[in-house]
Amino acid sequence: MADVAIGGTLLRRRGAPLRRPVSAGIGPGLSVLYLSLLVGLPVAALISKSANVNAWSFVWHDPHTRSVLEFTFFIALAIAVLNAITGVALAWVLVRDDFPGKRIVNSLIDLPFALPTIVAGLVLLTLYGPGSPIGVNVAATRVGVLFALLFVTLPFVTRAVQPVLLSLELDVEDAAACLGAKPLTIFRRIILPAILPATLTGAALAFARALGEYGSVVLIGGNIPHTEIGSQVIANLVENGAPQAAAAVGLALIVMALLVLLVLALVTRRWSRHA
């Protein structure tokens, strides 16, 4: 009774504690501490490990490392461009087209996120490797690496563009059509500007992912220098007892990824001011 008859309880409760106890800052503080220990400290250790002239001189002068970094950058760029095209096409078909089994296809898009990368590699090696049932053998070639990276980055652009396409109002396209615009003109003038920011965001995420991908390429790459990408060089350097050089290569990759994400942030900010 006393619990609910507030008229009485209120008076007893009046001396109750203040609204903002000193402990209010402890939670966020613990969160920050946890993040610092889990992420901040290892990354700081990595940076400190690479703070070594010899390590950077190795990155710069070792011909194999340099060619791998160049290859990694360009194949990641190719992946971003290819994904921008296929991802928009996929999103378009999934949003505007209708066919039996569309829902299954839609959930299949997330498969690369759910499937462990090494299994993705194994799967691709089986289909496009030696003894391929369809007679395509790209194992131990750069095309094989491209296939693997396309596989793991497939969802990024599609999943970024899909909601934007869904939110576009058909009225605008109808209005343009009434004004005499051809379908391709409508796509170029009306739809493309609307989905471009999302496409770029997805493509940049695909770029970052391709830049650091490891699990899916180790098997189909065939473990030869010609097909190596950045992560494999790092793993090999660690195995050969050169963690400083590995840290330097790692930082070089991180810087590449951050630069691309930064450029993207600047570009989308300029666009959002338009909108």
Binding site: P28, G29, S31, V32, L35, S36, V39, G40, L41, P42, V43, A45, L46, K49, L205, A208, L211, G212, E213, Y214, G215, G230, S231, Q232, I234, A235, V238, P243, A246, A247, G250, L253, I254, A257, L258, L261
Partner: peptide, 29 residues
């Protein structure tokens, strides 16, 4: 949160880093 943008950046860090680099940083530490 103190420095919310930094906290956000740190939380998203694992997405911008290769898993191998994450493994390496644990290895180094």
């Amino acid at each position: 949160m103190p420095l919310p943008w930094l906290v956000n950046a740190v939380i998203n860090m694992p997405f911008a880093m290769s898993p191998v680099i994450i493994g390496l940083s644990v290895f180094v530490l």
